[in-house]
Design a protein around this nucleic acid. Sequence first.
DNA 1: ATATTTTTGTACTGATTCGCAGAATTTATA
DNA 2: TATAAATTCTGCGAATCAGTACAAAAATAT
Lengths: 214, 214
Amino acid sequence: MTGKARGRPRQFDADTVLEQAVGVFSARGFSATSLDDLAHATGLNRPSLYNAFGDKEALYLQALGHFVARLRRTLEEAVMAEPDLATALGNLYRGALDAYFAVDPAPGCFVFCTAPVEALAHPAVRELTLALVNELDRLLGERFASAKEAGQLPPGLDPVQTAKLAQAALHTLAIRARAGESRASLQRFATHTVALLAPSPVPRRARAPRRRTR
Amino acid sequence: MTGKARGRPRQFDADTVLEQAVGVFSARGFSATSLDDLAHATGLNRPSLYNAFGDKEALYLQALGHFVARLRRTLEEAVMAEPDLATALGNLYRGALDAYFAVDPAPGCFVFCTAPVEALAHPAVRELTLALVNELDRLLGERFASAKEAGQLPPGLDPVQTAKLAQAALHTLAIRARAGESRASLQRFATHTVALLAPSPVPRRARAPRRRTR
DNA sequence: ATATTTTTGTACTGATTCGCAGAATTTATA
DNA sequence: TATAAATTCTGCGAATCAGTACAAAAATAT
């Protein structure tokens, strides 16, 4: 595909630049980030940014895409491929907290903390955000459905709605991390949530509760 | 306190202006909102805004404060004063959805959708956001604790962590509404969450709630 | 070696931004 | 009536912003 490279070669790696853009956008959000901020953070200058990625909104969307693609890979192996439901959810939240507290003023989640603001003014951002939410619903829904088949899910829990609640925990972790809540507190919450949504391998009582009585 | 009013009287009501500022900030977020936007929306001009509220950040903080104060009143009567836990949570989420879908491109929650972005750059915003999160944790925690005393809470649920999960549902409703998810879908999720966190009053077996529950 | 293609860097433009200065206006007080 | 106090309004200024034009640079192809 790219054997020739006709003109002057680039002096940067596009993925690296997107990674740095994710960092800057994640810290300041879309509107408060200037192209000078991005140019300074990436080391290249504005015209190069325009040439490679288009205008500011296009760059933001590509940063979102880059972030989501990475998230998707992580999710696939840490959640979908893990046979035990409680372990899978534990991996999900621990991985999320790792990312949310990656740098010192904890930025929370790039998309859940910065994309919603722009969603109203920029339909493309809105669609990308909704697409991620829907995909997470779908993936987690599949995971809960397979757990239900394996008998790991209490009969009262609907896989689809439970998946949404599992994602809700992700959203609150993101917001709370950025608001300044401590990682220890959030870790406790995550543990409790896992215990609620994925009752660990029932220790003694092999008898599942009857039907959906409450 | 204010019987005299020495100079020229104001031609606007401060609370009304703050209400309008909430609307504008909620739609565009802090950084993307210009003072001209605010001046146009409120009908008064920039120097009057500065004179009455200070600079842009001060106005945003006061808009947040106004919003939180109103939210606190609503919460107090619809959630804390309601004796039945399921009804209380139902009121909470229905009221939230009413607000999140108040105008056509659903803006979601003013604070949960627009404040987190600015939380890193503006410590005051961060503190106010965390203060709201903590207060909601505390109020809902009290509500779940009193429900536990009344026997309305399953024994496995810790009131404090369950309150955080109840707020998590609020956060996800806000984000999803702004991302474009339908109100019907969110209503279903809310109903399911209420059923999970507050198992409804057992239908047949007349478990008369003791004490002063009604 | 010359031409072509792509990237890089400097400089510029037009627009928007926030915040404020200063004069005019409206009220209460002396 | 005259003075003081507070608000309103026009307009300004300094800074920043996004996006681009243009020339120099670096590579390939002829």
